[in-house]
C-alpha cells in the first residue's frame, strides 16, 4: 500500500480525502508507483468554485496531503472542480500525457482560455508530467 497520509487541515477539506483515495487506488499499478517513488514536489491544488485548497507534498515514495496552502508550491493548479477531476481522465500514451484526444484537447482549450491555470507548466515540466501520470486513471 502506498505511503499516503493526511496532514493537518486535511480532515476539514473533503477534496483532500478524495484525491488521497484516488491516488491510493492508482498507486496499485506498478508503473504509477515507479513515478510516485521518483516524484519530489509540493503541489497546490485549488478547486476555485468549491473554495477548496489542498497541498500535496510528494517526497519520493511518500505523500502527505494538507488542507489549505502549506509552504511554497513547485506546481500550482487552479481550476473548477469538474475540470480538476477531468484532468484525471487524461490518457497516458508512450509514457506521456496525451493531449490529442477529446479529453486532452479540452484540457488544452481550458489552459488557453485561462479556465485552467498551472504554475510550473514550463519550469517544472518533469515533475508535472510525473504528477499527471500518477493522477491519471488510465
Amino acid at each position: 500500500m502506498a505511503d499516503i497520509n493526511l496532514g493537518p487541515g486535511a480532515e476539514e477539506v473533503p477534496l483532500a480525502g478524495m484525491l488521497a483515495e484516488m491516488l491510493m487506488s492508482n498507486l496499485e499499478k506498478p508503473e504509477k508507483k515507479r513515478d510516485f517513488e521518483k516524484l519530489k514536489a509540493r503541489v497546490l491544488i485549488h478547486a476555485v468554485d468549491a473554495e477548496a485548497k489542498i497541498t500535496m507534498d510528494f517526497d519520493r515514495g511518500k505523500l502527505t496531503v494538507y488542507g489549505g496552502e502549506v509552504g511554497k508550491p513547485d506546481i500550482a493548479i487552479a481550476t473548477d472542480s469538474t475540470t480538476l477531476l477531468e484532468l484525471a481522465n487524461l490518457k497516458i500514451k508512450y509514457g506521456l500525457p496525451w493531449y490529442f484526444d477529446e479529453t486532452g484537447m479540452a484540457v488544452v482549450k481550458k489552459l488557453l482560455k485561462g479556465d485552467l491555470k498551472i504554475k510550473g507548466l514550463f519550469t517544472k515540466l518533469g515533475p508535472l508530467t510525473r504528477l499527471t501520470k500518477i493522477m491519471s486513471l488510465s
Binding site: 487506488s25 478547486a47 468554485d49
Partner: peptide, 28 residues
Amino acid sequence: DTVKAMMQGKLKLKGDLPSIVRAVKAAS
C-alpha cells in the same frame, strides 16, 4: 454542482471514486 458538492463534503459518496471520476460527464 455535484462534483463541487462532493469536494465540499455537502454530498458524500460511498463507492469507488475513480470509477465515478471516469464517468464525470455522464454523472453531470
